[in-house]
Design a protein around this nucleic acid. Structure first.
Length: 259
DNA sequence: ATTCTTGTTGAATG
DNA sequence: GCATTCAACAAGAA
């Protein structure tokens, strides 16, 4: 689930809970989550440091270290963070960060799809991993460049992290639903007016979702998000939600509302 | 038991 | 050479 709104929520969560505490020790359950960092480096770089800032780019979260560099967390499909004032470690904790005051921040992930790394510079990481501009805060011209540069379906282009970072399967469907655009339409068919609407809805959907704590149950009634199943009633008309496949991903839409 | 899945990657394809 | 699509990945849920 962790797309831009989820990760932004986790960023604020980490900001409000974990900043300023001295790190006593860490334990990493499974090295498969590491790519460019060794187990030893994680332990060595975190011990004795404090997290002093948080940053997010797309679906990547960065907790910057007072000693330099940052801890990068990517949540895959099932990852999340849990802060515990006591030392209780949640199930499926893949990385446990113990602070000297007895509290704990845990990176929890049931599956092994996810990434943990220690990075030297956030912008360097973003460049090396070819992440496009963050979906929040793009100008209309930036977005027009993305859409005009896309060859396939509009949904595929919006989900391409190297063009625009942060949108995943669920929120891309929501944004296109709010725009009245069929996700299967080729980028070339998207009009200038629709690009303007698209930019507004990317902002609006993401900001609203963060405000709802990225919780599907708190989202506005006018959203498709809680009705991602075949035959569900469309919140905007009398029609039914249908499921199709767009570049291999399950896609939900209302054919009546989306042209 | 089998199929499905919210993300990314590298190979295959156009 | 480039952009796009697909299978693979992991493992729980339906």
């Amino acid at each position: 689930m962790p797309e831009l709104p989820d990760v932004e929520y986790l960023r604020r969560y980490a900001h409000d809970t974990a900043l300023g505490r001295e790190i006593d020790s860490t334990s990493l359950r499974d090295e498969r989550l590491l790519r460019e960092t060794s187990r030893q480096l994680v332990a060595r770089r975190l011990k004795g440091a404090r997290f002093d800032e948080t940053a997010r780019h797309g679906k990547h979260l960065f907790l910057t270290l007072s000693s330099g560099g940052a801890l990068m967390l990517h949540f895959g499909m099932t990852g999340t963070l849990r802060f515990r004032p006591d030392a209780n470690e949640p199930d499926f904790s893949q990385l446990v960060i113990r602070f000297t005051d007895g509290s704990v921040l845990a990176y929890v992930n049931k599956r092994m799809l996810g990434r943990i790394a220690v990075v030297e510079h956030v912008d360097e990481y973003v460049r090396e991993h070819e992440l496009g501009p963050d979906a929040l805060g793009m100008s209309r011209d930036d977005l027009a460049e993305v859409v005009r540069g896309g060859r396939g379906a509009i949904k595929s282009t919006l989900m391409n992290q190297s063009r625009i970072a942060g949108l995943g399967n669920v929120y891309t469907d929501e944004i296109l639903y709010q725009c009245g655009i069929d996700p299967r339409r080729p980028c070339a068919d998207v009009t200038d007016e629709e690009i303007t609407t698209l930019r507004e809805q990317i902002e609006s959907v993401c900001i609203t979702a963060v405000r709802c704590q990225a919780n599907p149950q708190r989202v506005p009634d006018s959203w498709l998000l809680p009705r991602r199943e075949e035959g569900a009633s469309c919140p905007g008309c009398e029609g039914e939600v249908v499921k199709v496949t767009v570049s291999g991903r399950s896609t939900y839409l209302c054919a009546g509302c989306q042209q």
